[in-house]
Design a binder for these strands. Structure first.
Length: 119
DNA sequence: TCCGTGACAAGAC
DNA sequence: CGTCTTGCCACGG
């Protein structure tokens, strides 16, 4: 078996993903791609989505803090999307009515806007 | 094995 | 902004 390439399947990376996700602080959001990259699996954003999809409904993990790179909720409104927006708002994240979220302000590990010099 | 599908991403316009 | 296209990769039929 090829051990030189990072594997995607199997519980190993799943655990790494869960662990990382669990560390995303309240009031912050991450993108699928970021999560994948942070655990050493670049370009596996879709895989992250697959894993999250399988989470039990009563999971304690902050799945709602995961959004797409466009700063939008990827979940259909009637299938979790509304719930996600609700949870995010409950922790202070501003979600515009059309489901847009500012990654600049709420993105985890993303540069907060460089403060403009006042003179 | 080929092919479509998906909680994605980035770039062109 | 929106829409399209391409690239990506795991899965399942």
């Amino acid at each position: 078996m090829n051990l030189t390439q990072p594997t995607t399947t199997g519980p190993r990376n799943d655990i790494r993903l869960y662990t990382l996700l669990a560390s995303v602080p309240e009031g912050k959001v991450v993108t699928y791609g970021q999560l994948a990259e942070l655990i050493g699996l670049p370009r596996r954003a879709r895989w992250v989505g697959q894993i999250l999809k399988q989470l039990p409904n009563d999971t304690r993990l902050p799945w709602h803090r995961v959004i797409n790179a466009q700063g939008r909720i990827s979940l259909p409104p009637l299938n979790g999307g509304d719930e996600q927006a609700k949870r995010l708002r409950e922790e202070g994240v501003v979600v515009s009515q059309d489901g847009k979220i500012s990654l600049r302000r709420y993105g985890w590990k993303t540069q907060p806007r460089p403060r403009p010099r006042l003179l």
